[in-house]
């Protein structure tokens, strides 16, 4: 077993390089004085300065965060609610629900986006930021259910019934017994929904109104006419933010919970 040890490490390191080289390249280029994609002409922070003063980018950034926050919040509430209701349903309905839940998960984004667009147009809803949010909620709910359902399953029904026996109203039992118990799942679901929303391009592309830009649609527009180095600065900031958020989420969630749950980010 030992003799291949070095080869194994080399393989894993090569994959890591493959995964990070593109991101690292963008980071390096974001500090490049010149506009060139291939030549280093000196260190500069000018692209960061022009990024922060670029209204288009700042607006897209604001939109992205706003859309992600609202979609993640709403989908977390809806997804958590249905997860709490699921154990009470008979098996057939529950299985049907879970099968339906897989549709947006496994379906192609282009079909999800286009079919939602058709629905908005058919019902006379003009495309705007609102339609983007409604669409994001649609594809975020399944991810919330994915995170919350295992917690609810684990919890079982005894705590809730004990609370009722001790005189709690169903509402009290829900808010004081069930919700605190499944909170890690809810947090994970919210984070997952938030990231999926930020990451999305395709669904946004088809359901946004004219002039509504998120980071994804802004970058897509730029790619066609030529990427500006401000976008490299932007991608560096996005990467660092993601890194910090994930590390924090891991630190907060990891305590104790991780041992039981396996590898949850």
């Amino acid at each position: 077993m030992k003799k291949h040890g070095a080869l194994r490490v080399i393989y894993l390191v090569l994959i890591i390089i493959f995964l990070y080289a593109p991101i690292f390249t963008l980071m390096v280029l974001s500090f490049n004085e010149g506009k060139s994609m291939g030549k280093w002409t000196g260190f500069s922070l000018r692209w960061y300065a022009s990024m922060f003063s670029d209204e288009e980018i700042m607006e897209a950034l604001g939109n992205t965060v706003f859309i992600a926050l609202v979609s993640a919040l709403v989908s977390t509430v809806i997804g958590t609610a249905v997860c709490i209701a699921l154990p009470r349903m008979n098996k057939k309905i529950r299985d049907a629900f879970l099968a339906l839940n897989n549709i947006p998960l496994l379906n192609a984004d282009i079909v999800t986006g286009l079919s939602l667009m058709l629905a908005f147009v058919a019902f006379g809803v003009s495309l705007s930021m609102g339609t983007v949010i409604l669409s994001h909620i649609t594809f975020c709910i399944p991810y919330v259910i994915l995170s919350v359902r295992p917690r609810v399953k684990q919890l079982g029904n005894t705590g809730y019934e004990a609370a009722l026996d001790l005189g709690a109203t169903p509402g009290q039992a829900l808010f004081k017994v069930i919700l605190p118990e499944i909170r890690p799942g809810i947090t994970a679901g919210f984070l997952m929904a938030f990231t999926m929303s930020v990451d999305d391009f395709i669904v946004t592309h088809f359901t946004r109104g004219a002039g509504v830009n998120t980071l994804s649609t802004l970058i897509y527009g730029q790619v066609r006419i030529g990427i500006r180095p401000t976008v490299y600065a932007l991608s560096t900031i996005v990467f660092v933010t993601v890194l910090i958020v994930l590390v924090l989420a891991n630190v907060f969630q990891g305590k104790g919970a991780r041992a039981r749950q396996g590898k949850r980010i």
């Binding site: 995964l19 080289a21 593109p22 970058i219 790619v223 990427i227």
Partner: peptide, 19 residues
């Protein structure tokens, strides 16, 4: 191994364009 997945999909694809 999973960290790059969380970075915006468009940015990841754009990075390859730059490369």
């Amino acid at each position: 191994f999973l960290l790059p997945m969380w970075m915006n999909f468009l940015l990841r694809t754009m990075a390859w364009q730059v490369l």
